[in-house]
Design a protein around this nucleic acid. Structure first.
Length: 338
DNA sequence: CCTGCCGCCTGCGCGC
DNA sequence: TGCGCGCAGGCGGCAG
């Protein structure tokens, strides 16, 4: 399941393979994949457009086009991007195909591309030390630009919860993404304000972590991992947590994100952008999620699984004691304070 | 405005 | 062997 680290890994793969390239044709193989396309616009208008850069907020990706429109992509539960040569046998989960023009740039165009890549890298560097990898990716992309043959960019999606659509004028920040809170890897995130927002919520803290309008990119897996790390039970009401406690939780989310990003970065290559959230890192490094019955790595108490918010939650009953003040959870996991 | 809940999907693993 | 069922879960929309 793609959460922020997986989506960021995909963003880097897309940046490497798609930046500067022109889409010559689009092919929608499953209508559900473009269901979010407004009636007054047409996904087909992507054809003929050039991709300037790939951006991300939380779990949303968008391709900023030179026309200042954007192509928004969400992986949903099972979305993947792949780059394949023309004529590759179709995959059963292929939903959208973008055909990319061959690149045979003249020397001055290459120089311009290098400059653009440096701009992007500089911007990202100011943001995060993670951007060092980004820089390398952009440079590799620029260096091989003139060699790029015709390529197809495939959007695969088994469960069809994901999709793509054109957002007119959305290159900077599409309206469909504007409602999301900045994510914890966003250099412009106001962390103090975020702590205050969370502190005002009279809702279980796990719900708050999963609320993409508060801060984006956290899904069920990383929520459980961060809560375990910070020793907080997910049903603790957010407005009962102290500022330092919330700060520690946000630190935990950030650390888990970064560790997962490193693992993701090592297991994907440039031409095969795999977005299977269950790979590598998950099997080896998870402390709570999916560890039902196994000993807590900190204290040895068996990890417990509960149904909460109609999905599973995993926690250590010793390190993450259930809050006393919140009453009991109903069968649906709803809190009944009294 | 705020919170909570439902439906959308498909593949897998389980029990019978 | 095969069938049905529960589960996995992000997110938009809507009800209260």
């Amino acid at each position: 399941v793609p959460e922020l680290p997986e989506v960021e890994t995909v963003r880097r793969g897309l940046a490497e393979n798609l930046t500067g390239r022109t889409v010559t044709a689009v092919d929608v193989l499953h209508p559900r994949a473009t269901r979010r396309q407004g009636a007054d616009t047409d996904f087909g208008q992507v054809a003929g457009q050039r991709v300037d850069r790939i951006r991300r907020r939380g779990k949303y990706l968008w391709f900023a086009l030179s026309s200042q429109d954007a192509v928004i992509a969400h992986l949903g539960m099972s979305g993947q991007f792949r780059f394949v040569p023309p004529g590759t046998a179709p995959h059963p989960h292929l939903r959208i195909r973008l055909v990319l023009a061959a690149e045979d740039l003249a020397a001055e165009d290459l120089a311009a591309e290098d400059l653009a890549a440096e701009d992007l890298a500089a911007e990202d560097l100011a943001a995060e030390d993670l951007a060092a990898e980004d820089l390398a990716a952009e440079e590799r992309a620029a260096a091989t630009h003139h060699l790029r043959p015709v390529t197809e960019c495939w959007f695969l999606d088994q469960r069809t919860f994901g999709g793509m659509h054109v957002s007119p004028g959305g290159a900077e920040l599409p309206t469909e993404v504007a409602h999301l809170g900045r994510d914890l890897l966003d250099p412009e995130l106001d962390r103090t304000a975020l702590v205050e927002t969370i502190r005002r919520k009279h809702v279980g803290i796990k719900r708050v972590l999963l609320d993409q309008t508060v801060t984006s990119g956290i899904g069920n897996i990383y929520a459980d991992e961060a809560l375990w790390q910070a020793r907080i039970h997910g049903e603790r009401l957010a407005d009962t947590l102290t500022r330092p406690k919330i700060g520690g939780l946000l630190d935990a989310v950030t650390q888990v994100f970064q560790a997962a990003l490193v693992a993701g970065g090592t297991s994907f290559d440039s031409l095969y952008v795999n977005v299977n959230g269950e790979s590598g890192y998950f099997d080896r490094s998870l402390n709570a999620y999916g560890q039902t019955g196994r000993p807590c790595p900190r204290c040895g108490t068996p990890i417990r699984r509960t149904s909460f918010m109609n999905r599973s939650s995993h926690f250590c009953p010793h390190c993450q004691p259930r809050p006393r003040t919140s009453g009991r959870a109903t069968a649906l996991g709803r809190l009944t304070p009294l």
